[in-house]
Amino acid sequence: MSKPIIELKNYSYRYDNTDEIMLKNLTLSINEGEFIGVVGCNKAGKSTLCKCLVGIQPFVTGGAWDGEIIIDGKSMNETKGEGVSEIIGIVFQDAESQFTQPTVEDEMAFAMCNFGFDRETIRERILYAAKACGLEDLLGRSPFRLSGGQQQRLAVGCILALQPRVLILDESTSQLDPVGRDDIFRLVGELNKQGKTVIMVDHNIEKIAECVDKVLVLHDGNLVAFDDPHKVFADKERMNSHSVRLPQVTDAAIALRDQLDIAADLPVSLEEAVPVFQKLGQEVV
């Protein structure tokens, strides 16, 4: 049983110059090696949560908070966010706006140069990250000449080169086509299999349900659910009342529950749904 790498204890957060509390009394624990999907409607607090986990809010951009966030056993109330970047890396939605260097290789080296790594280590890590993200043949190209999917992979690669234990992706696939999106999910899935903890904010419920160990549902800053996707998506009414739709196969399975005679969990992915719906097809025939 792996130990928690991120813990939130009654954590609340409010932006500067507002009265509205964006995150309300969140208590949860994420174990090392888990793949967490974060879902919720707009303004649910998903991006705010991500920025709080890396200490950007409140320690860099301001704001007020209550409770605490503990990263790898150390409370951020004491560390003030120092040292978090060695454990957690974050990739934002708009990849292109994060690039500042003329080539892919320089871009991957940028963060490591800022943290003072030596040249040999930088070289090794670039080779590792480029291979992991499928960018080995693109090292000499300008980041602005890459496709959307390649840019997002580069954004992941830049953070991966720092070898964080936790990777947070904040809506990284929202600007990508389906092929690019699947690429990113495949990439983070492989990184998770290698032991990295992944926290992914995404609106694509189907991909989230298919890939993650647990789903974290936020609504209006409140924690609505944090559990296995089968348990979370089993309660359709609760999800819909918090503006979260179910995976299509789960929705269909719920509608046909009487005909399907489902003994165990409802399917949440296509792979799980095929044998369940096949039975229905045989009965109809």
Partner: peptide
Amino acid sequence: VKVQDQAIAMDTKGFNAKCKKTVYRE
């Protein structure tokens, strides 16, 4: 409009780190 996100991204990549920066290119 992109400036704020860019600033945060650069900060997470150590732009404000106090240590001596490496020059990678040669």
